[in-house]
């Protein structure tokens, strides 16, 4: 005869064991799949990041491992960043050819607009992309390359081309178009790109310095 307590204990032990077996089996399945897919996933994620950077930086400009060149940048008013951001240094041979910066346009119509800006060592923009924004759909979102080619007009611009007083949207007497009815968003982007160029000009010396012996992989 088993007492009720013994019976309950036995039952608990039995259900516990069954649950354990299922958990073990499930974990084994996950561990196996994770192990098999991890290299592919890492590759896809890196390819994705590289593809994004390639949109603002022509492939011909560099032959180094861009992702390995990532460095951390302290928050800076000219970049609009309030947290450390990333930058990537493009080199051909040993010469620095361009830099890709993360920047924020803080005065969009509905908050921050995150940008990726490529700047050649000569101070010319190689490309700009919006990576995150909350602008009104259908109104301010044309800054997104998926919606329109507007952002392409920054290519090859520099602090002197157009002249500083023309670094504005056309409505304010500047050189950059903006669609009627939605000028706040492009205004913010133009200002952010200009500031990033300014930032680059001030820190140019630090970029062209010879590469450190060991690049920190972030």
């Amino acid at each position: 005869m088993t007492s009720p307590i013994q019976f309950a204990l036995k039952n608990a032990l039995r259900t516990g064991t069954i649950l354990f077996v299922f958990a073990l089996f499930g974990t084994a399945m996950l561990a196996f799949t994770h192990d098999r897919t991890e290299p592919t996933i890492t590759r896809s994620q890196q390819a994705e990041k590289l593809a994004l950077i390639n949109q603002v930086l022509p492939a011909a400009l560099y032959d180094n491992d861009l992702l390995a060149s990532q460095q951390s940048v302290l928050p800076d008013d000219l970049l609009g960043t309030r947290q450390p951001s990333a930058r990537w240094i493009a080199r051909r041979g040993d010469a620095v050819t361009a830099v890709v910066l993360e920047a924020i346009a803080p005065d969009g119509y509905s908050g921050d607009i995150a940008l990726l800006i490529g700047i050649g060592i000569d101070g010319n923009v190689t490309g700009v992309r919006v990576t995150a924004h909350r602008e009104t759909p259908g109104l301010g979102d044309y800054i997104d390359r998926a919606k329109s080619a507007w952002i392409d007009q920054f290519a090859d611009k520099s602090l002197t081309n157009p002249a500083p007083k023309h670094w504005k949207v056309a409505k304010d007497g500047g050189a950059f178009d903006a669609r009627a009815g939605a000028t706040i968003t492009p205004r913010a982007v133009v200002k952010a790109v200009r500031n990033a160029l300014d930032y680059f000009a001030r820190h140019r010396a630090a970029f062209v310095a010879p590469p450190p012996a060991k690049e920190k992989i972030a």
Binding site: M29, L30, T33, H34, T37, T40, I41, S44, Q45, A47, E48
Partner: peptide, 11 residues
């Protein structure tokens, strides 16, 4: 498992 497979093969 499906999540991992999709992440790997249809990123």
């Amino acid at each position: 498992v499906i999540d991992l497979l999709m992440n790997a093969f249809v990123h």
